[in-house]
Design a protein around this nucleic acid. Structure first.
Length: 818
RNA sequence: GCCCCCGUAGUCCAAUGGCAGAGACAGAGGACUUAAAAUCCUUCCAGUGUCGGUUCGAGUCCGACCGGGGGCACCA
């Protein structure tokens, strides 16, 4: 019988020893190693860890442990994103305080992480629901308030009728609440916003720094989300109104083709324009019907155009034509100026509207395509300007430049930019979040809570009705909400809303530098030492929200003088999801795989290895495709080698078998390269090869006593320590070393051992392989060419024919072209 | 509708423009065993979605199409 190691025993054996050694503490002041900040996205404490966590932390650990082996002072912290709705919902169900559920779950996850052998620095833990943390949320909010980055406004906001709270734009997905999939509605409310739009250009332009360091997909998603558009603003005089109406257009070149104007029906402008026209009641009816429609209705792509003529006219500034003003819901009140010039010939939406309302269509760009009047298809491409006065004959780009110049000269327009990005709504009408540190005073208005009164702590939820009812439960806590105004002392009320939890996670990576600091959010000296994050690891689900907000916070803090950098995460790795049979795991789907079951059956190392080896880290892992049993088999195979070694620890490797030494050094070299380029699956494959080669050397080669075999075994153990820490530690002990292998150090690679003695050269004729020859890797091109022509196969194939071209790539191939 | 990514054995996946197969899963056969498990060894299988181009040479670069996935979407 072949021995196999006892997984559970090995796990229990090493955990207390590692607790003692603490190989991953990064807080020592005199640490001479260069720094590396490796960060895993922190979890939400929603019960025990699941398969997705296991994948994410297995991958993050490969990176963190690799850099430790390479001699870096790695900060690899963990914390909990512990405010949020699930805790509140659980509290409602259990009739308890959200704190109980939250901190219970944190303890459960913490002990699972320890067992999973995550290389976290347990001295740097934070929870966003601790008053010591959210105090600094409040401080940060007030700093932003001072700078005008936090402000209140009335607006129609997204509202989830089930969660009974407002939602950020980013939290409405296809018209549904991202959390509970209820149809989101609109509600007019006075709410707190952060002015992220002030940073739109920098959020876009700074992505240059991230090119090649972040997944292209994420950069693309952020670009799409910010949605910068470049165009012009044009003033249209309005009959019977002193001030003109400004429209935004990306196609000022088509201004001569503007045959009507459309204003957003739900804009103040529309209401103002309709007043006194006699169509007020029809307008009101239309507005009501639009308001009744949900976002779902609005998103229907083939929805017919609707609208109402406002019985008023604008004057086209370039040709003096009187054009009708309509109100419609296809123009958005909160984008651009809420009013557009309609050019039906060259914009499909305008054309659809014109055809529905029987409005004129004037072609001003001539192209090969059919007249939109006939085809019903707007021509949106480039062409030659016609019917456009001074622009006639120009192409699109030239016409845009010229018209903007002309309009600017007459003070009728200018170039302009617009963004799809909107300001970030952060008020939430829920209990389990950071209270907004503002006091509303009847005479002083909004008053910030003075710094020495922070944190504004959450009261106990005891006896509180947390059920969603549209206003914050905090408003009902009399002795909490009623306070004296810090300015005039009069009776005033606290703002009862709490902050979006994305606020909490937008700066937590700064706090890890000293999570226990009590007089500041963070210490600039520590920040300068550790930040920016060298490697961020997390799911692509946060590609827009969390990453965009964090980038915004970093830039805002930079501008306030608190940070010396403008991008928080230098490198980003997005791991894929763990699926089962092709779809996301869920209880209702019946394809849930429990992490605890998998760990009990196969052990921590085999599960970690399976996650890492399943494929490229960015790809989804289908658990149906992986074999944890196979992983365990391999680990046993590797472990057995450590027991076969008969040479003493510390023996001289240079006396070992040269062939195996070369294999070992080449493997180490390739494993390093694969890890640094995130091809962890390839790195594992290389370790497997090394194990196979070592097995062969022991059984039928140089034998177990050869120092090269020990060298190989130690290389295997150290490589495996990135993925399978228990097995690696066990091997290390059997090899006669003391723990922890995590600190063993990456073996030094001897470049001389990477050089091949002989390489195979391919000999081709017309790209077809005729023969292979062994040559020295240092062979010159002329020498190689000579050898090729001396080769019998080549000679035979050539049969005296004269080559027209000879390609020599020493020491790889010779291709003779006839 | 606009934009992005991906198509390699039965499966998951490797391959700085240079021998398509590194590694694994599954399958088949064998060794060991009274037998099984475990272990070890051997082995089968595709020519890279399709068509065209660039090149001495294309899985890799370019173009079109087909298929799959994703982002944005009445954003003027």
């Amino acid at each position: 019988m072949h021995e196999a190691y006892d997984i559970q025993h090995v796990q229990e054996k090493w955990l207390p020893i590692w607790d003692q050694i603490q190989p991953f503490r990064s807080g020592k002041a005199d640490d001479p190693r260069p720094k590396k900040y490796v960060l895993d996205m922190f979890p939400y404490p929603s019960g025990d860890l699941h398969m997705g966590h296991a994948e994410a932390y297995a991958l993050g650990d490969v990176i963190a442990r690799y850099w430790v082996q390479k001699g870096f002072n790695v900060m690899h912290p963990i914390g909990w994103d512990s405010f949020g709705l699930p805790a509140e919902n659980a509290a409602i169900k259990r009739n308890s305080d959200p704190r109980e559920w939250t901190y219970e779950n944190i303890e459960i996850q913490k002990s699972s992480m320890r067992r999973f052998a995550c290389s976290f620095d347990w001295d740097r833990v934070l929870h966003t629901s601790d008053p010591e943390y959210y105090k600094w949320n409040q401080w940060l909010f007030l700093e932003m308030y001072k700078k005008g980055l936090a402000y209140r406004k009335d607006a129609a906001v997204n509202w989830c009728p089930t969660c009974q709270t407002v939602l950020a734009n980013e939290q409405v997905v296809a018209g549904l609440c991202e959390r509970c999939d209820s149809v989101a509605t609109k509600k007019k409310l006075n709410q707190w916003y952060l002015k992220i739009t002030d940073y739109a250009d920098r959020l876009l332009d700074d992505m240059q720094q991230l090119e090649g360091q972040w997944p292209e997909k994420v950069l693309m998603m952020q670009r799409n989300w910010i949605g910068r558009s470049i165009g012009a603003e044009v003033d249209f005089a309005i009959e019977g109104r002193d001030a003109p109406v400004t429209v935004y257009t990306t196609r000022p070149d088509t201004l001569h083709g503007a045959t009507f104007m459309v204003v957003a029906v739900d804009s103040e402008l529309a209401t103002e324009l309709v007043t006194g026209t006699g169509v007020e009641s029809d307008f009101a009816k239309y507005l009501e019907s639009v308001k009744a429609a949900t976002d779902i209705d609005r998103l229907a792509t083939d929805r017919p155009k609707t609208g109402i003529f406002l019985n008023r006219y604008a004057i086209n500034p370039v040709n003096g034509e009187k054009i009708a003003i309509w109100a419609s819901d296809y123009v958005l009140a909160d984008y651009g100026t809420g009013a557009i010039m309609a050019v039906p010939a060259h914009d499909q939406r305008d054309l659809d509207f014109a055809r529905a309302m029987k409005l004129p269509v004037t072609v001003v760009v001539e192209s090969d395509e059919e007249d939109p009047n006939i085809s019903g298809v707007a021509t949106t491409g480039d062409g030659v300007m016609v019917n456009s006065g001074s622009l006639n004959g120009l192409n699109k780009a030239d016409a845009i430049n010229k018209i903007i110049e002309e309009l600017a000269g007459k003070k009728l327009g200018k170039s302009a930019k617009n963004y799809r990005l909107r300001d970030w709504l952060i008020s939430r009408q829920r209990f389990w979040g950071t209270p907004i540190p503002i006091i509303h005073c009847p005479s002083c208005g909004e008053v910030p809570v003075p710094h020495d009164q922070l944190p504004v702590a959450l009261p106990s939820a005891k006896g509180l009705d947390l059920k969603p009812k549209g206003t914050s439960p905090l408003g009902a806590v009399e002795d909490w909400v009623n306070v004296a105004c810090p300015q005039c002392g009069a009776a005033a009320k606290r703002d009862a809303d709490t902050m979006d939890t994305f606020f909490d996670s937008s700066w937590y990576y700064l706090r890890y530098t000293n999570p226990n600091l009590s007089d500041q959010a963070f210490d600039r000296k520590e920040i300068d030492k550790w930040l920016p994050v060298d490697q961020y690891v997390g799911g692509v689900t946060h590609a827009i929200l969390h990453l965009l907000y964090s980038r915004f916070f970093t830039k805002a803090l930079h501008d306030m003088g608190y940070l010396g950098f403008t991008e928080p995460f230098s490198k980003l790795l997005n791991q894929g999801m763990v699926l089962m049979d092709g779809s996301a795991m869920s209880k209702s789907r019946g394809n849930l795989v429990k992490l605890s079951d998998e760990l009990a059956t196969h052990g921590v190392d085999a599960i970690r290895l399976s996650m890492v080896f399943a494929g490229p880290p960015e790809d989804d892992v289908d658990w149906a495709d992986v074999s944890p049993a196979g992983s365990l088999k391999f680990l046993n195979r590797a472990w057995r080698i450590s027991g076969d070694i008969t040479s003493p620890a510390g023996c001289d490797f240079t006396k070992g078998d040269l062939a195996l030494r070369k294999v070992t050094h080449k493997a180490l070299h390739e494993i390093s390269f694969a890890v640094e380029t995130f091809r962890f699956n390839v790195a594992v494959a290389r370790v497997m090869e090394l194990v196979n080669a070592t097995r062969k050397a022991i059984d039928s080669g140089c034998g177990a006593a050869d120092p090269a075999v020990r060298e190989a075994a130690e290389a295997i153990a150290i490589s495996l320590s990135l993925v399978a820490p228990y097995t690696a530690e066990e091997m290390w002990e059997r090899l006669g070393h003391k723990p922890a292998i995590a600190l063993a150090g990456w073996p030094t690679i001897d470049p001389a051992l990477l050089a091949e003695d002989a390489v195979t050269v391919i000999l081709q004729i017309n790209g077809k392989i005729k023969d292979r020859i062994e040559v020295s890797p240092n062979i010159s091109e002329t020498e190689l060419e000579k050898l090729a022509f001396e080769n019998p196969e080549i000679k035979a194939a050539l049969a005296g024919a004269k080559p027209s071209k000879i390609i020599v790539r020493a020491p790889k191939l010779v291709n003779i072209v006839l």
